[in-house]
Design a protein around this nucleic acid. Sequence first.
DNA 1: TCATTATTCAATCAACTACTTGAATATATG
DNA 2: CATATATTCAAGTAGTTGATTGAATAATGA
Lengths: 231, 231
Amino acid sequence: MNNEVISQGVKRQFKDDLFEQFARIGKALSSGRRLELLELLAQRERSVEELASEAALSVANCSQHLQILRAAQLVAVRRDGLFSRYRLADEQVLRLWLSFRQLGEARLAEVSRVVETYLKDRRALEAITNDQLIARLRTNDVVVLDVRPEEEFRAGHIAAARSIPITMLEQRLKEIPQRSTIVAYCRGPYCVFADDAVGLLRKHGYQAYRLQNGFPEWKMQGLPTATGAQS
Amino acid sequence: MNNEVISQGVKRQFKDDLFEQFARIGKALSSGRRLELLELLAQRERSVEELASEAALSVANCSQHLQILRAAQLVAVRRDGLFSRYRLADEQVLRLWLSFRQLGEARLAEVSRVVETYLKDRRALEAITNDQLIARLRTNDVVVLDVRPEEEFRAGHIAAARSIPITMLEQRLKEIPQRSTIVAYCRGPYCVFADDAVGLLRKHGYQAYRLQNGFPEWKMQGLPTATGAQS
DNA sequence: TCATTATTCAATCAACTACTTGAATATATG
DNA sequence: CATATATTCAAGTAGTTGATTGAATAATGA
């Protein structure tokens, strides 16, 4: 009897300890700022300063958030001269973040509300899915356009894609054949680079579409990717 | 120029709002208590009182945690007479929780440390994987034993299994043929019911093994399941 | 209707979190 | 070796969150 009581206590302690450990991951994921950092790191490795400026945080604050992500083993860091370069710890982290995001999209009405509020024009632009793009690539004449900053293209891109960062697109329009269908993609469903690209292309008479997802989702689905600069 | 500044501000607001929404899920997952509740709900629907007593919480405290999980749309509730019965909101939640747990196991050294501290004997008991069990079921004479409480068996179990709750196992030993190999399973890798069952069975001369994972993992993997009482 | 029971709400206090600031550390360069 | 730059650390403050109570609210069944 006494034995049982003790054993009960031990089991409770075990469960408390165990779930408290798992909760560390939850705590790391419980801040919008940190999720934004993960989303940025899903594109490529970045220094603290780059992250701070992209996420509109002070460097010290950003560094602190990164320490929290690191304590939960969600990101890893390497030293490169003067810089600390952060990246997602591994593919499992990307998978967790994507399924986390997917759950939010599917179940939190507020997410769709926020997206609709800010991205009103999104509906008008027909988006095509990864599978549809694969199908088109086999049969049609399609140009796949990566409009992210060039470093992100270099860190990894859809195998068939060519890079024209959104900031350069207007100047470099003549590189794109008028005859082809254009499919533009960027960082993911909450990035507006591809929206802007499609808008610009259509204004200039192209037949352009947005890819529904971005590069991380494509990669996670196991579809063909490549790294390095444009050949 | 003014335009651009405004647009920058709007984009920032959008990202802040969006990621803050996703962070609601992280917040819900940031307490060990709540994760334990999810783990329990992964087995079956439960009333507030059942959950409170299994997780060693006061009913009021438990209810509060459930409200938080519900606000993040991770659990759903239905009214059944005097009781509010809670369940996981859908399969995606189970998937998120399992990939969350998997990440913790793989990356947080403390998780393995806690498991090793409390479940020292675990190593001695060879565990067999889902795939190994499938293979054995085809060729060998195996009894698959569900040692969870009977209500959990009724709510869903491995198709080939028979139910003997761990609390009844000693009395009902004679129901199990001595010749067969026994594979016992329970709620999951952190549940000790199957460990206890294997210990007891071996003491009585059976050849018994623990299934590495529990029922939720089996189901998530798309392997054959059944519901309802024993036929 | 009233008594019973399960659940939720509200208020408290303690504990924690985010962000800021300024100093400290680490690395590279002249 | 001194200087510049990138990052981290430490301390302080304001604001928020969590656990715990006891009271209030539903829903049922007599």
